[in-house]
Design a protein around this nucleic acid. Structure first.
Lengths: 405, 405
DNA sequence: ATTATTTTTTTCAAAGATCAAATTAAATGA
DNA sequence: TCATTTAATTTGATCTTTGAAAAAAATAAT
């Protein structure tokens, strides 16, 4: 298996063509046929053939030209194509410890509705999770004035060790059991294609479809939420590893026999930069008043409190070390750091990034670009929707071939 | 670029077919057409067409059936195909600090000749390197009774930061300059296709073509020579990163502000497990007689010397930590550890491997297989030959298409 | 107002590729 | 010697892509 393309029957070939043309249109936003041909290296004749298929399937649409044609060159004007938003309605759901956030987007990625469903508690049984997801989904549809039957794909994001290829949960902080076939359970409860993945991969997918990595085929996303996550994109696809639980950045070891992690092992990065780790430090270090609020601790550090500052300092140094290791291993062209406000201040600050750069193997070539991307609250849900969107696109286009035959 | 196959013109498609069929034949060693069809999912008709092309190009050959057909089923007997060794002669060259090892192999991978060329010194100028390689190549051909003009591809392996896609040397311990266009220089000096890569990728390629990873599409190779190297194979292809210098396992940090590495940074894995690091430790730790022979130090450790033992012990713990990090990130199905005799005893021992396993994120799924593969001296050179072989195969098959047109 | 020019898109016929089905080849069993 | 079985090849049909030609739709020029 030395990495050659699979041989393709005529039908497969046309399907590939459709996928590729559709992807080009989505990526560009709006693009004329001639530019699709240029970009995909496919002849204009084929582009015409494929786009007419996609048009009659309702997946894309022509943009009616605006009156404003000042400064136009002569010649037949190009007509731009775009994804037809109305083609599909997609839902993305993100489970955090406090609530289930739902976002509804159309096939163009435009937000159609948002919805927030509070959780009774942070941990629940698989069955409760299923009913919760269904209720949240129903609530979101209601709020947006849509019927649940209009939704053609659902994506779910939860924290933990998720095997997305098998829709299997090895472990999640939101579930009271390990090894749950959550995907099967939810697929059964749902009348539409269902996809799930862990936090970091969601963000990676969102960055790839809508965000900073729109034209990048190899990049890495680091996320800090409760834990520390990583999404790896290689050759345009999310890398998941054999058992689907690779990219465990938060549990790479940064200190031999180091601090105890909630995973039970010692020296994990998460045990130095996670919320609970910082608070633990603060309390151990004999502060007079026991601390249980991270933002208060952070405020004290900013105010100059030496003890508090040293806690964040060490976290930053450990994080820099871990990130440098990832860069040394992958030599990516782009690293995207993503997380909440405070994270940005103490983990994504310029001093930490400087430290990362000085810990990367030095060559006379530009260092990988490290971009910091602050998202709104809906980032995670939008990522979940992005996953579902990709799945629905592929399915639809595949079926399109089957229909024709 | 969401990872779809490139659309393929008719000619491309046939080329893919040829590549795939040829690869199947090489992988199997000897295989009948009907089995190729089964394995590659291509119809027998197409297999017949493609194999007849490859046959008439002289790249493969039919195996004349042996007399022994006892226990044969009835029906027309299958005739096996194999790669035709005589089709090409390939050279692999490995530069170490003491010598240039050359191996000549035929297109089947069978060794045709070996040759060792001693170096005047471990470090040289790019020009000296070129002339050295050419002399070593000439010497090998001479010794094997072949003419240098018969060689149809040359692969070179050297240590350091190599950008194999651009045949560029960022840095190598064998060269007295950084940033050398060694590939261009050698291509100019050589009348045949030339390929180069760093140590670890050579081994990965050798494992993939001839070794333990023959049917595995995702695996990781760790090598210990002077430094510590890693080769990453994802989806059948070597992953190289953006600047071609990823997989720098030896310079991932295992200790914050730790031991000084020869790369100038602190806390690199190499600074704990490399030869020089171990000797440095031995001398610092106030042993009576200064130590400069690693095997002597190792002997003392085995004999029970507590100081010596603690040195190797720490190296083992650090190595385990680094390896566990790699596994946590990649979740590969297979890890191959490769190196010299002593390495096996103190880094690849069962206690270290146990430690690795206990530092990997725990899920209820089988751990990645860690296989230890001890190679002979010629491993590196054979890997270089494997790289060249892959290149020559692809080129030949591509040109085959151009000839027909 | 009409014609020429330019650029995009579509149509059409040619060139290949894959495959299912039929045919041929080459063995064993009866 | 003939039936049976399995492998390999041939053949005709179907489907794709593409280059070239034609059509379409605008602006520029006369």
């Amino acid at each position: 298996m030395a990495g050659h393309q699979r041989i393709s029957t005529a039908n497969d070939q046309r399907e590939n063509g459709r996928q590729q043309v559709f992807e080009a249109i989505r990526q560009a936003g709006r693009i004329a046929r001639i530019d699709i041909a240029r970009e995909t290296q496919v002849s204009p004749a084929t582009v015409t053939a494929i786009t007419s298929e996609l048009l009659s399937a309702g997946l894309i649409e022509e943009i009616t030209p605006e009156g404003d044609r000042t400064g136009a060159k002569r010649g037949r004007p190009r007509v731009a194509l775009k994804v037809r938003g109305a083609a599909h309605l997609i839902a993305g759901i993100k489970i955090s410890d406090r609530s289930a956030t739902v976002i509804l987007v159309d096939f163009e990625g435009q937000t159609v509705g948002e919805y927030d469903h509070e959780l009774p508690g942070p941990v629940m049984s698989p069955e409760e999770m299923v009913s919760l997801v269904m209720r949240a989904l129903g609530g979101a549809c209601n709020a947006a004035g849509r019927d649940i039957s209009e939704v053609s794909g659902v994506g779910l994001g939860i924290a933990g060790l998720i095997d997305a290829t098998r829709n299997f949960v090895h472990w999640s902080p939101s579930l009271d059991q390990r090894n749950v076939e959550l995907g099967r359970m939810l697929s059964d409860a749902m009348p539409v294609p269902f996809y799930m993945d862990n936090d970091a991969n969601l963000v990676a997918k969102a960055e790839q479809l809508f965000g900073e990595a729109r034209n990048v085929s190899d990049f890495i996303v680091i996320t800090i939420e409760q834990g520390v996550g990583m999404g790896i994109v290689i050759d345009g696809r999310i890398y998941r590893g054999e058992r689907g639980c690779g990219a465990e950045f938060g549990h790479t070891k940064v200190q031999l026999d180091g601090a105890l992690c909630r995973c039970g092992q010692r020296g994990c990065l998460e045990a130095y930069v996670g919320d609970y780790a910082l608070l633990r430090e603060a309390n151990i270090r004999g502060s007079a008043q026991p601390e249980d609020d991270l933002s208060a601790l952070y405020a004290r550090a900013k105010a100059g409190d030496a003890m508090a500052r040293s806690i964040f300092d060490r976290a930053g140094r450990m994080f820099a070390m871990g990130l440098a290791n990832v860069i040394n291993i992958f030599d990516p062209s782009l690293v995207i750091l993503s997380g909440e406000q405070m994270t940005f201040d103490f983990l994504y600050g310029s001093d930490v990034l400087e430290r990362v750069k000085s810990s990367v193997v030095q060559v006379d070539a530009p260092l990988p670009e490290i971009r910091v991307h602050k998202w709104g609250d809906l980032m995670w849900a939008k990522g979940a929707a992005a996953c579902a969107m990709e799945g629905v696109s592929e399915l639809t286009i595949r079926n399109l071939g089957a229909d024709a035959a």
